[in-house]
């Protein structure tokens, strides 16, 4: 029985970690080419959750069409935020810290906007899955967790393919070290940046849908970007592989602590781990494993 419980916690931890991974990878992708921590990423998650809710309720469709809408919606939204909020500052060659601050202001704006429009209340998805939980050999596993895990793994595999097997993906990886030279080769760097934001937003869209389904939808849902933030630091800022591994570690750690010690100390432990990494291993898990993910683990 104890073993069963443990196994169940591991599955829950992995599915939580997989959502963190989706968010963290999108976050790390933008960081790797523009070198700033994009806090507006959280608003894309939050708005995608609302979008998925609206779409699935209005058109009475199942999980897959809703997922597709969230992917497209999240991606588009991230591109719009880049064009309106970041591009003007990049064109003026403003310091990176301004991009950071504007991204924070944008996330606050969108959070308050949704509160003003719809109120701070929780919205609940109608069931998009036929069964809510699987009972196997004494385990009770929420199906949404499994769907979350599956969708995240597929999304990450597709991302890997795009980054390593397509020209635009190679250009994204190249742009992480040099935003000027690609232009000389005929590559429109603004397009590369837009594609990067689209991918980042699409991943946020997936996580928004699943977070909305499991935690309900509310204006502060985007606050979960902080977990991804922690994961990217533990992973090594800018390293995608590190971010994924760290996300799963964080998901497991949080689930275990919540289950065996108590939910109140969970945030403290996460932050403590992050600070320990910052102090003793600032290049993160990627540095520990000697991981080269194709993007740099450049120090700031």
């Amino acid at each position: 029985m104890v073993k069963c419980l443990l196994l169940q916690q591991i599955i829950n931890g992995l599915s939580l970690g997989s959502v963190y991974a989706l968010i963290a990878v999108g976050f790390a992708l933008v960081f790797s080419i523009l070198k700033f921590s994009n806090f507006s990423h959280g608003s894309v998650i939050m708005l995608s959750a609302y979008l998925g809710l609206w779409f699935s309720n209005n058109f009475n469709v199942g999980l897959l069409p809703t997922l597709l809408v969230c992917i497209l919606g999240g991606g588009t939204l991230a591109v719009i935020i880049e064009k309106i909020g970041f591009k003007p500052i990049r064109d003026k060659e403003g310091p990176l810290i301004y991009l950071f601050v504007v991204s924070i202001a944008i996330s606050m704006f969108l959070q308050y906007l949704m509160t003003a429009l719809l109120g701070g209340r929780f919205f609940i998805y109608k069931p998009l899955l036929k069964t809510s939980a699987w009972r196997v050999a004494g385990l009770t596993i929420p199906v949404v967790n499994l769907a979350m895990l599956g969708a995240s793994v597929i999304a990450l595999a597709i991302l890997l393919y795009v980054l390593y097997r397509t020209t635009i993906g190679i250009a994204i990886r190249a742009a992480s070290t040099d935003l000027f030279t690609p232009n000389l080769l005929g590559i429109n760097i603004d397009l590369v940046v837009s594609v990067t934001f689209f991918i980042s937003g699409a991943l946020a869209g997936i996580s928004g849908l699943f977070l909305g389904m499991s935690l309900n939808v509310y204006p502060q849902l985007g606050g979960l970007v902080m977990k991804a933030f922690i994961a990217t630091v533990i992973g090594g800022l800018g390293s995608l592989g590190g971010a994924v591994i760290a996300s799963f570690m964080l998901g497991l750690l949080e689930t275990m602590i919540t289950a065996y010690i108590g939910g109140a100390v969970t945030p403290m432990v996460s932050f403590a781990v992050m600070i320990l990494f910052l102090l003793f291993k600032p290049e993160g898990v990627a540095g520990l494993l000697g991981l080269s993910s194709g993007t740099t683990t450049q120090k700031l």
């Binding site: 020209t167 190679i170 250009a171 990886r173 190249a174 992480s176 070290t177 040099d178 000027f180 030279t181 690609p182 000389l184 080769l185 005929g186 590559i187 080269s292 194709g294 993007t295 740099t296």
Partner: peptide, 25 residues
């Protein structure tokens, strides 16, 4: 096509990938 000062090859991607990007245009 400009071949810039200091080479400016992309250090983090492979030689073959550098050439792939060269063929972008």
């Amino acid at each position: 096509v400009q071949i810039p000062e200091g080479r400016r090859i992309f250090p983090n991607i492979s030689v073959a990938e550098n050439l792939t990007l060269g063929a972008y245009a």
